[in-house]
């Protein structure tokens, strides 16, 4: 059993129990223990970086300190949290001067960033710790005949120099992880383009145009569903379909699932245990196809 400190972030516990449940159940089945640490906070994500990068890195470093004290590496589910925490971790490890500056702020909380732990995206845990070969062997309910459109979003891949999840121009980790479950990863136009998730509330019209394009392209490619990594991408493409229907009179009705939900299903978790009713676009079509 390998243990990680789970960084849950804000949006997932507030709004997406389907993501948290599927991740906890799937990773547990794969022998990964997720430890919930007290006193974690918001990761201070990209919008906070835009306001004040030093503050964002200090808050991220504080959360990494909690994992250091527990002697655990951190694993994230949300791509925004991954970007904030991983970028801060790498930047501080590589700049003694910046690390010293951040540690002066952290001293007010009694913490000191040491830089002796890793921040990992859960896909890295699957690929690098468990291994896709072992993952494939663990699948009890293969997702045969299911065509899945992999969607990375923005913050899992960039800034690539810090995150190093995969090649930001030609990534394959999500597609390979989908195919390890027995499903088919389908290609579609402008796969790496933003879904507009973080523009919601800022520029709703542009956000909806981007989501609409993503829905049109994945549907045209014949995908049965879209696999996401990020709670904001999930909202943009799931709730976004209702808004696209209302504004443009276009119905896509393509289920959007977090990759962890597909993983849990393939590992034999009962769909009734996954809070799938949380989805605005029903996932019955997916469940029926793989049953």
């Amino acid at each position: 059993m390998t243990s990680y400190a789970l960084f849950l972030g804000c949006t997932i516990p507030a709004r997406q129990p389907n993501y948290e449940l599927s991740a906890r159940k799937a990773l547990s089945k794969l022998g990964i223990e997720l430890v919930d640490l007290a006193n974690m906070t918001c990761c201070a994500p990209p919008p906070v970086q835009s306001i004040d990068l030093e503050t964002s890195f200090a808050v991220a470093a504080y959360n990494i300190c909690l994992a250091e004290e527990a002697n655990l590496d951190l694993v994230t589910l949300c791509s925004g949290c991954f970007e904030s925490l991983c970028a801060a971790n790498v930047a501080l490890k590589h700049s003694p001067a910046f690390k010293a500056k951040i540690n002066r702020s952290l001293s007010k909380t009694g913490k000191e960033f040491l830089g002796n732990k890793e921040v990992k995206h859960y896909l890295q845990v699957l690929r690098d710790d468990i291994g896709l070969k072992r993952l494939k062997q663990s699948v009890s309910e293969p997702l045969n005949n299911l065509k899945v459109a992999a969607f990375y979003g923005c913050h899992a891949l960039r800034p690539s120099g810090h995150l190093r999840l995969d090649d930001p121009e030609r990534p394959s980790i999500l597609e390979n992880s989908i195919e390890a479950l027995g499903a088919e990863s389908v290609e579609y136009k402008n796969k790496l383009k933003c879904c507009g998730g973080l523009l919601r509330g800022l520029s709703d019209e542009i956000a909806l145009d981007l989501a609409r394009e993503k829905l049109a392209n994945t549907t045209k490619a014949g995908a049965d569903c879209i696999a996401t990594l990020c709670p904001f991408c999930f909202v943009a493409l799931d709730i976004g379909q209702m808004q696209v229907r209302s504004k443009f009179q276009e119905t896509y009705d393509i289920p959007v699932l977090h990759y962890t939900e597909l993983l849990a299903l393939a590992l034999g978790v009962d769909p009734k245990e996954l809070a799938l009713e949380t989805h605005k676009i029903k996932v019955d079509k997916v469940i029926n196809k793989i049953s």
């Binding site: 919930d36 007290a38 006193n39 974690m40 906070t41 504080y62």
Partner: peptide
């Protein structure tokens, strides 16, 4: 839903950091 209780949030700590960076 079968989820564990949430751990407490470090509100005091984050306020100290925001004060230290003058955020």
């Amino acid at each position: 839903l079968g989820l564990p209780p949430l751990q407490p949030t470090g509100v005091d700590a984050i306020r100290k950091i925001l004060s230290a960076t003058e955020f």
